[in-house]
C-alpha cells in the first residue's frame, strides 16, 4: 500500500490536485482512498459529488463509540474511498487534535484492512504544522510527502514550514519529502521562483500543473476535471502526475528496502 501525503497552504489547490490525482490513479485501476485533513472538509467533495461530506468528527459527535466505517467512508468516482476528518466547533476546540482523533477512529475500525486500498492519499492543510497536522507524516501513516505550492510568498512560506517539520522527524525514520508540485497562478517568473525555493530547501519541482479554466468549470459541476473533461490537456497533465507520483514513490520504497 502506497501512502502519500499532499500538503499545501489553504486555497493553493491541494484538494484539487489531490482529487484529480486520486481520480487519475483510480482510472488506472488502483483502489484509492483519499482522506481529507482540513476542518473545511471539502477535499473529496468533487469525487463524491455530495454537497456536504459526512466527517469523522461529526459522526463521533453524533454517535460516540457507535460510529461504523460506513458512516464515515463514502465511495465516489471509480470507487475512490472518501473520508473527511472534519473539525471542531468553530471558535473553540482544537483542529489539530481533531485530525488525531479522526485517525485514531479509522485505526480502531481497521479501515485499511477492511477496504484494502492500494494507495492512500492524505490531503492535509499545511498552514499549521502543529502536532495534529503533522500526524499524517508520522509512523504508520504517509511515507511520501508532496507539497503543492505556487510562486506566491505565503504558499512558499507554508511549504518551507512543512519541509522543516519533515526534516525534524528525520531521526524517527518517518516520511520523506518527494518534491513540490507547482500549481501555477501565472505570476511573473513563477517557475524560476519555485525552482529556486526548492533548491534552497533541498528538493525539486516534480511537476508543473498549468492554470486551466476547465478546472473551475469541472468544479462548478462538482466533479474533478479528470472525470468531467477526460480528453482535455489538463486531464492529461493529471494523468502524467499520477504516473510520476507512482514512479517516485515506488523507486523510493525499493531503495529503502
Amino acid at each position: 500500500m502506497l501512502r502519500i501525503a499532499v500538503y499545501g497552504k489553504g486555497g493553493i489547490g491541494k484538494s484539487t490536485t489531490s482529487a484529480n490525482l486520486s481520480a487519475a490513479l483510480a482510472q488506472k485501476g488502483y483502489r484509492v482512498m483519499q482522506i481529507g485533513c482540513d476542518p473545511k472538509a471539502d477535499s473529496t467533495r468533487n469525487i463524491c459529488g455530495l454537497k456536504e461530506m459526512p466527517t469523522v468528527l461529526d459522526a463521533i459527535r453524533e454517535k460516540g463509540s457507535a460510529v461504523k466505517l460506513e458512516d464515515i467512508v463514502k465511495e465516489g468516482y471509480h470507487g475512490i474511498l472518501c473520508v473527511e476528518a472534519g473539525g471542531p466547533t468553530p471558535g473553540i476546540g482544537c483542529a489539530g487534535r481533531g485530525i488525531i482523533t479522526a485517525f485514531e477512529k479509522l485505526e480502531e475500525l481497521h479501515a485499511f484492512s477492511v477496504y484494502q486500498p492500494d494507495i492512500v492519499i492524505y490531503d492535509v492543510l499545511g498552514d499549521v504544522v502543529c502536532g495534529g497536522f503533522a500526524m499524517p507524516i508520522r509512523d504508520g501513516y504517509a511515507r511520501h510527502v508532496f507539497v503543492v505550492t505556487s510562486g506566491e510568498r505565503m504558499a512558499l512560506y507554508a511549504a518551507g514550514n512543512i519541509a522543516e517539520a519533515i526534516s525534524n522527524f528525520k531521526r524517527r525514520g518517518y516520511a520523506s519529502l518527494e518534491g513540490l508540485i507547482l500549481n501555477s497562478r501565472n505570476i511573473e517568473r513563477e517557475q524560476e521562483i519555485v525552482e529556486q525555493f526548492a533548491e534552497e530547501i533541498g528538493t525539486k519541482v516534480q511537476k508543473i500543473i498549468p492554470r486551466d479554466a476547465l478546472i473551475q468549470s469541472a468544479e462548478d459541476m462538482q466533479k474533478t476535471v479528470v472525470e468531467a473533461y477526460p480528453d482535455s490537456q489538463i486531464s492529461r497533465e493529471y494523468d502524467s502526475l499520477a504516473d510520476l507520483v507512482l514512479k517516485i514513490c515506488r523507486e523510493k520504497e525499493q531503495k529503502d528496502e
Partner: peptide
Amino acid sequence: MMTGTDFKG
C-alpha cells in the same frame, strides 16, 4: 494528548 505528542517517535 492535546498537543499531539508523538510518543512512539
